[in-house]
Design a binder for these strands. Structure first.
Lengths: 217, 217
DNA sequence: CAATTCTGTCAATTATTGTTGACAGAATAC
DNA sequence: GTATTCTGTCAACAATAATTGACAGAATTG
């Protein structure tokens, strides 16, 4: 069940939208001001936030920026009565997923929400693949050790690595994991056969460090 | 090759210790003050830091605390001429691995270092097992989704989970992963057959969140 | 009560991962 | 140049993980 936060200073409009969206199968919550919207978006995780630009005090644009900062994965749909191309472009640049002009038809809103939710699905599956790949790479001790080793010292030779890892007797094992890491683009070899982390590899080493510190503390 | 940082304001003693430790097969570096020691320990990762308590300016105890804060896995061996039980207890509480009184025999120092290194080895292997287990659990998409789902909503029934994950047709698959998660103590079931995360599971969900946020940003 | 849905287990099968020994060209040492 | 060490490949095998279909008791519905 997807969660949508409706932000508008017009209580009547909020109530109406809330009713319609609930009928359409969404969970809804309401916020009367930008400040309230921000507060709710931070404390609770919404899939979508509907945000009216022209609200007193905090401008919708600022709220948008703040929400995206704290909840990068929450999608924000801007709603405004005074549409300009500049505003729209600005909003999208700041991370808005879409931009609707008042007055709008309910179908327009529902269609927009549907489209944005499709985007979420797509992004999620892309991220999942990435995570699969990352976690399965990191689920092996030897590979983790290789990554850490090359992270602390770039450009090592084959023997050097076997020695550091204490697996001099099992060099084929090392060759296997090195090949794996090479195929997945985590490490690379220069013409002198020295192994180093790729950019991607450094990123993964960072994840590893993050988690290790997390577990150790 | 293990790296040891020797901290003492007596240059002669430092040089002597450094020579001995190098002969014993260690990499060494020296620091003349607590401040210098802290700086080096932060910028470089040492396995062991030898720390003299009675140094001008920053007290050894403070340096100890700072080092452990930044480098929780670096082991610190305190060395002091004025040993008291209180100091020793205090040092160990603050995270010192051992406590040696001046004057000491070289054999004592080497033995202490050897013992502490053994501890590191032991801790490392324990951590590695933990990491293996964590990563291999997380390397499966379905399990990650189950964990996230139960993290957002504790106490779900079997069908509910299949529906949320969109695998109504493959219920045996879900049963398999649920059993795995149950066996590894990540999730549990109450008498009404509702599934929830265990404490351990919540911890693992935290790791997952950490990494996901890391990857997404 | 009968029918149906829910919550599994189990065994068989398949897919994926990891290990090992045999072998060999390239580089280096002597 | 010869011997030795380094840096692999390859195929066979072993171990582990994941999927699937058949089945069944428990709970719920009607």
């Amino acid at each position: 069940m997807k969660k949508i936060l409706i932000t508008d200073d017009d209580a009547e409009l909020r109530a109406k939208l809330s009713e319609i969206l609930k009928e359409a199968g969404y969970l809804t919550d309401e916020a009367a001001s930008g400040k309230e919207a921000l507060k709710k978006a931070v404390s609770d995780e919404f899939d979508i936030v509907l945000l009216d630009l022209m609200m007193p005090k905090m401008s919708g644009m600022d709220v948008l920026a703040e929400i995206k900062k704290v909840r990068p994965r929450t999608k924000v749909i801007m709603i405004t009565a005074f549409a300009t191309v500049e505003n729209a472009v600005d909003a999208v640049k700041k991370g808005a997923s879409d931009y609707i002009c008042k007055p709008f038809k309910i179908e327009t809103l529902l269609a927009t929400i549907g489209r944005v939710l499709e985007e979420i699905k797509f992004e999620d599956s892309a991220n999942k693949l990435d995570l699969d790949y990352t976690f399965s790479t990191l689920s092996n001790q030897i590979r983790r050790n290789i990554i850490k080793l090359l992270g602390s010292k770039a450009g090592m030779r084959f023997v050097e690595i076997t020695k550091e890892l204490g697996i001099e007797e099992e060099h084929t094992k090392l060759a296997f994991h090195l090949r794996m890491l090479k195929e997945t683009g985590i490490i690379e070899q220069d013409p002198e056969k020295l192994y180093s982390l790729t950019k991607e590899g450094e990123k993964i080493m960072d994840y590893l460090r993050t988690i290790e510190n997390y577990i150790l503390t």
